[in-house]
Amino acid sequence: MTYISQPSAPEVPVPEPVSPARQAWRMFRAHHAAMAGLAFLGFICLVSIVGPYLYTVSPRDMVWAPFTPPGASQYILGTDYLGRDLLAGLINGGRITITVGLTAALIAVTIGVTVGAFAGFFGGQVDNILMRITEFFQVLPYLLFAMVVVMLFSPTIINISIAIGIVSWTDMARLTRGEFMRVREMDYVKAERSIGARNAWLIWAVILPNAAPPLIVVAALAIGNAILFEAGLSFLGLSDPNTMSWGRMIGDNRPFILDNSWGVTLPGTIIFLTVLAVSLVGDGLNDALNPKLRHR
């Protein structure tokens, strides 16, 4: 008897199992514009956090002659109509703008997801009532409503964030509702239900994670919207008068654009770049999390 030695199986490299999160990150990394956006946002956040400690010039003090152009003094970006340092304004203003943007977006996302989840999960009369409320907030002219709220209550950071948050959640609610209605009918949800899962568990642990990808993208965009919104409010003078913000710089310097266009162009460019970076990150997230919707 001869034994024919079994040829050993050819070495096929088995791909390492990749978690969905890691896969999404790979896709995101491949999106160069989104990576650039992320880098820029990181830079802005870093400057907003540590900047005021490193560059200690006060954004409120008169430091040099008014209307000094960039590069003409030790204050490299020049001064505004009151002789205040523009660079200090940009660094300190970023803090307020980013804080309000994030807080307001968080409020909007929380309300939107909650309302949408309940409407989509329970359907019927609950859905009907919640959607009527959503429609009501949709017809409110966002900015005017926020203006009224901020004027009646004082223009503190938290009031401004709340004012922005309570008018910005409707898109989120509609999207969440749609996703919940779709996922609710999936077999795995029915299976969970059949073994007696509670509603709270179904909403939180079963449906929400599966509905999350498109929601994350919209949540990212909500931050950009909130930053633009804050800029608009503070441009109109509805911001805390004791703090600097990018929109306020534009509003303050607007009457003097003929002598001092950089007091308006600089903060505007920063707002534009920041919101652009947020939308690019949103675009990248969309590619990474919703691959089917690509190339739209």
Binding site: A231, G232, F235, I250, T265, G268, F272, V275, L276, L280
Partner: peptide, 17 residues
């Protein structure tokens, strides 16, 4: 993308300039 990211009041000021 650019249109979405630009504050409308700032566009106005730039157009005036």
């Amino acid at each position: 993308l650019v249109g979405y990211s630009t504050p409308v009041f700032w566009v106005g000021i730039m157009l005036i300039l």
